[in-house]
Deep mutational scan, measured.
Amino acid sequence: MALNTPQITPTKKITVRAIGEELPRGDYQRCPQCDMLFSLPEINSHQSAYCPRCQAKIRDGRDWSLTRLAAMAFTMLLLMPFAWGEPLLHIWLLGIRIDANVMQGIWQMTKQGDAITGSMVFFCVIGAPLILVTSIAYLWFGNRLGMNLRPVLLMLERLKEWVMLDIYLVGIGVASIKVQDYAHIQAGVGLFSFVALVILTTVTLSHLNVEELWERFYPQRPATRRDEKLRVCLGCHFTGYPDQRGRCPRCHIPLRLRRRHSLQKCWAALLASIVLLLPANLLPISIIYLNGGRQEDTILSGIMSLASSNIAVAGIVFIASILVPFTKVIVMFTLLLSIHFKCQQGLRTRILLLRMVTWIGRWSMLDLFVISLTMSLINRDQILAFTMGPAAFYFGAAVILTILAVEWLDSRLLWDAHESGNARFDD
C-alpha cells in the first residue's frame, strides 16, 4: 500500500549564491595573561575582544583620537594649579581661619623630617597626573615632529594605576569627618577644581587605549598563520617573532617567553612588605597634641575612634588600611606557593584573586592621604596640633611594595603550573 505524501511548494523562490571570495581570516594573537594562541577576527570600533580561555580583555573598544586626548590633557593642565594650590577646605580653629590644600599637606610631611613619605604622596597625587598630561601632550606634538614615541607609550600603561586623584578625593571626605570634632569646616574653591580634575582624569584614563596608539604610530604586520613560536610582548602586546637582537619589532624591548626574574622580584617585594606591615600596624601612625597632652593612634585605634562619629567612614578606612593590605599579602603568598608547588586545582579562583588584588591594591594609600591633609588643617603649635607617627613611612612603603609585587608577577606562570593543553579552566 503506497502512502500519498503531499508536496510542499515554497511560496518564495530560494536563491543560492556561491561564495565568490575567501572568507576573511583572523590574525593570530597570544593572550598576555595566559599565553593562549588564538585567531582574533577583525574588530570594529566600539567592540571589545576577550581571550577565549581566561576571559582577559585583549582589545578595548573604547578609543579616543589623539586630538581629543590632547584637549583633555590641556584642560587638566589648566585645572591643576587651582586643584593643588587653592584651598580645598576652610576650618575655623580657636577663632582663626585655616586653609588646607594639597601642596601644603605634602610640605608639612616633608617639613617634619619625613621627606620619603611626603614624596610618596607627591608622586601619586601630583607627579603621576602631571606625567600623564605631559605624556599625552608629548605624543600629540611628537607625532607631528617625527619624534620617538616608544618610551612614552611604554610608560603610559604602567602609569595608570599610580594616578590616585580619586583616592585622594575620598581622603578629603575622611579628613573632614575627623577634623569636624575640633573645628567648623567649609569647602574651599580649590575643592571644585579638584573634583573637576578627578572627573576629567577618570574619563581620560578610561578612554586612553595605549594598544590602539601603538597600532597608529607603529603598525606591524600581524601573524596570519598559526605558529607556536609566536611570542607576545608584555610592553606593547604585539604578537610576532623577535628581531635579530631578540627584541620586539614594535617597542624594541627584549621579547622573552616569560617575564625575567618574575618570581624572585615578586618574592622579594612580598617578604619586604610583610616585614614592614608589622611596625606599620604596631607603631603610632598619627599623633595629636591637645592642650599640651599627647595622644597617639595606631591604624586600628584611629579607626575605632573614627567609628564613634561615623561608622560608615570608619568601615571604608578599615577596608583600605587593614583589610586590603593583608588580603593582598595572603593572596600573593598563596599564588606564589601554588606556582612553586605546581598546583593544578582552583586555577579559576587564583586568576580571579590576582585580578582582584590588581584592582584594589592602590586604595591602601588612602590613610597616607588623610594624614597629609589633616596635617595641613590642624597645626596650632602646642594648643592643638596633628602630626604623623613613625608607622606612616612603614605603611606607605608596604603598600608600594605590594603594588610592585602584583605588577611583577607574570600571570602566565600560573598556567605553566597548571596542566598543559587546557582550553578551559575551572575549579
Rank of each mutant, 00 (worst) to 15 (best):
M1H: 00
T5V: 07
P6G: 11
Q7L: 06
Q7C: 05
I8T: 07
T9Y: 10
T9H: 06
I14F: 06
T15E: 08
A18P: 08
D27M: 07
Q33G: 06
M36K: 07
S39V: 11
P41Q: 08
I43G: 09
S45I: 08
C51R: 03
C51W: 15
Q55K: 08
K57V: 06
I58V: 09
I58G: 03
G61C: 12
T67M: 11
T67G: 08
T67C: 12
L69W: 07
M72Q: 07
A73Q: 03
F74L: 09
T75H: 08
T75Y: 02
L78W: 09
L78P: 10
L79R: 00
L79D: 02
P81S: 05
A83E: 03
W84T: 07
L89Y: 04
H90M: 04
I91D: 02
W92F: 03
W92S: 02
L93Q: 01
L93H: 00
L93A: 01
L94D: 00
R97P: 03
I98K: 03
I98V: 05
D99T: 08
N101P: 05
V102P: 03
Q104C: 07
I106D: 01
K111W: 04
Q112Y: 09
Q112C: 07
I116E: 15
S119R: 01
S119D: 10
M120C: 04
V121T: 06
F122L: 14
F122Q: 09
C124S: 07
V125I: 11
V125Q: 03
G127P: 04
I131K: 01
T134N: 12
I136C: 10
I136T: 07
L139Q: 02
L139N: 03
W140D: 09
W140L: 15
M147G: 04
M147Y: 04
L149V: 14
V152D: 02
V152H: 02
V152Y: 01
L153T: 14
L154M: 04
L156Y: 14
E157I: 15
K160L: 09
V163P: 03
V163N: 05
D166E: 15
A175L: 01
I177M: 13
I177L: 14
I177V: 06
K178W: 00
I185E: 06
A187M: 14
A187F: 13
G188M: 10
L191N: 03
L191D: 04
F192C: 06
A196W: 14
L197Q: 03
I199K: 06
L200F: 15
V203E: 05
S206H: 15
H207C: 15
H207E: 10
H207G: 15
L208M: 14
N209D: 10
N209F: 11
V210C: 14
E212N: 15
F217R: 15
P222F: 14
T224P: 14
R225L: 13
D227R: 13
E228K: 12
E228Q: 12
L230C: 15
R231E: 07
V232L: 14
V232Y: 14
H237K: 13
T239S: 13
Y241H: 13
D243H: 13
C248E: 00
P249W: 12
P249A: 09
R250V: 14
R250W: 08
I253R: 02
P254F: 10
R259S: 14
S262W: 04
S262N: 11
W267T: 14
A268P: 04
S273H: 04
V275Y: 02
L277G: 03
L278R: 02
L282H: 11
I287N: 08
I299M: 15
G302S: 01
S305W: 01
S305A: 12
L306Q: 00
L306M: 09
S308I: 15
S309E: 15
A312W: 15
A314V: 13
A314T: 12
I319F: 14
S321E: 00
I322Y: 05
L323H: 04
V324C: 13
V324F: 15
P325H: 06
T327C: 12
V329D: 04
I330H: 10
S338D: 07
I339K: 09
K342A: 07
K342W: 11
Q345H: 10
R348A: 13
R350A: 11
R350H: 10
R350C: 11
I351H: 14
L352H: 10
L352C: 10
L354R: 09
R355G: 14
R355Q: 13
V357R: 00
T358H: 11
W359E: 11
W359R: 14
I360P: 00
S364A: 00
V370M: 01
I371P: 03
L373A: 04
L373K: 07
L373Q: 09
T374R: 00
S376L: 11
L377F: 11
N379E: 02
Q382D: 03
I383Q: 02
F386A: 01
M388R: 04
G389H: 01
A391I: 01
F393K: 10
G396A: 06
V399T: 11
L404M: 13
V406K: 12
L409S: 04
L413Q: 14
L414F: 12
D416S: 09
D416G: 09
H418C: 04
N422Y: 11
R424H: 10
D427H: 13
